[in-house]
Each structure stands twice: as C-alpha cells, then as structure tokens.
C-alpha cells in the first residue's frame, strides 16, 4: 500500500477510497480555465461492483493498493463458497459466492483462472469473455415449428439458463457471452 498523486492515477490502478477497494475504470483530466488541475475518476467497487464517480485535485494524495494476480484452480463450490487452489503454492482458499455470483455459471471444476487478490480477499475472478458449455437440459423442438428466429430455453452443465435457437439439442455445446449471458453460436467439436 502506498500513496499516489491523483494526477498519476491511470486506468486500471487499484485504489482504496473510503476504506473500500476500487479499480479505476475511467480517468479524465479536467483543467478549469482558471483553477488547479483536477482528475475525474470512474471507479468500480471491487466488493460489490458499485460505480463511484470522484473528482480529485491532481495534487491530492490517494491510497493505492498492491494487488496480486494469482493463477488458481477452481476446485468446487459448496453452495456458499467457491474453493480454489493457488497454482503455485497449492494453498487452498475460499471465495464467498455472494460477491461473485455470476462466476458459478462460467467456471468448471478443474479449470484455472486468474484471481485478483488483496489482503487474503479475492477482489476479482477474471473470466474469459466467452465460454463454451454443454447443454444438459433442452426441450425437444415441436415438430413443424419452423418459424424463423424461434427460440427456447435450455440449461447448461453449470446451471445457466440460456435462450437459444430452437435447433439446439441436449448434449450439444454452445458458446455464451460471459458479459451478457446470451447465446452466441453452436460449437461443433
């Protein structure tokens, strides 16, 4: 942990504001014609995802936090926590599911992810932008239903409910956008 002048803060810097850890998503310099230089920051709270807009004078001291990027293997989830293992130290640790709820739909047991950690706390699980998942539950298409663009819901191996085109069958693999949770394409391995 160290002090950083607000004017030196870049996008991607990790900060402690009001005792909460944030990452800087946007930084804009504002120089009033007749006044000191300022920076306007858009911060994302790493505990709850809330966005905070804050304006600092460039000379203000801000608290920068040193985070670690840790390669970790996802072992399993027990319903309240994800269990991970640090790939280099083999230390096991838990991450409360509540703080990264959506991650459960995109992580398969045994896969490795990059985690952003600070003071034993996991601030971020870096998920890939797209994830290929096997469909485990799908209704059969109704015979004769050939309306273009017709859709139905299926459930994937991670319990994610996805709206897909009518032709997707159980056991097939689909590509899903992690950001939106939407179907993108069928994958033919």
């Amino acid at each position: 942990m160290g002090m950083i002048k607000a004017g030196a803060i870049a996008k991607g810097t990790y900060l402690l504001e009001k005792n909460e850890p944030f990452v800087v998503n946007e930084r804009e310099f504002v120089n009033p014609g007749k006044g000191s230089a300022f920076v306007r920051l858009k911060l994302k709270n790493l505990r709850n995802g809330a966005v905070l807009k804050v304006t600092h004078k460039s000379q203000d001291n801000c608290e920068e936090i040193d985070v670690d990027e840790v390669e970790s293997q996802f072992l399993y989830s027990d319903g309240t926590s994800y269990h991970f293992m640090d790939s280099s130290t083999f230390d096991q640790f838990e991450v409360p599911m509540a703080s990264h709820k959506d991650a459960q739909y995109y992580m398969l047991e045994g896969e490795t992810f990059k985690l952003t950690r600070w003071n034993e706390e996991t601030l971020d699980i870096r998920l890939p932008p797209k994830k290929d998942l096997i469909v485990t539950e799908a209704e059969e298409a109704v015979k004769g239903d050939t309306v273009t663009g017709a859709t139905k819901y299926v459930v994937t191996e991670t319990n994610l409910k996805v709206k897909v085109p009518i032709f997707i069958k159980q056991g097939e693999k689909i590509r899903v956008s992690v950001e939106t949770g939407e179907y993108q394409e069928r994958i033919n391995d």
């Binding site: 504002v30 009033p32 000191s36 300022f38 306007r40 807009k53 804050v54 304006t55 004078k57 203000d60």
Partner: peptide, 25 residues
C-alpha cells in the same frame, strides 16, 4: 467528497471541487 487538507485548501480550489463534482458533469 474529497476536500483536501482542512485549513490549507483555498476557497478557490474548494469551489472547483464542488463545481466539478456536483455541477459541471
């Protein structure tokens, strides 16, 4: 909102803090 160091920060800078944080945007 960030207010700088009490007693050191000038009225001019404090005005700009208020203006830029609450009004200009």
């Amino acid at each position: 909102l960030p207010a700088g160091y009490n007693g050191i920060e000038t009225a001019d800078d404090l005005f700009h803090r208020l203006f830029l944080s609450l009004v200009e945007d």
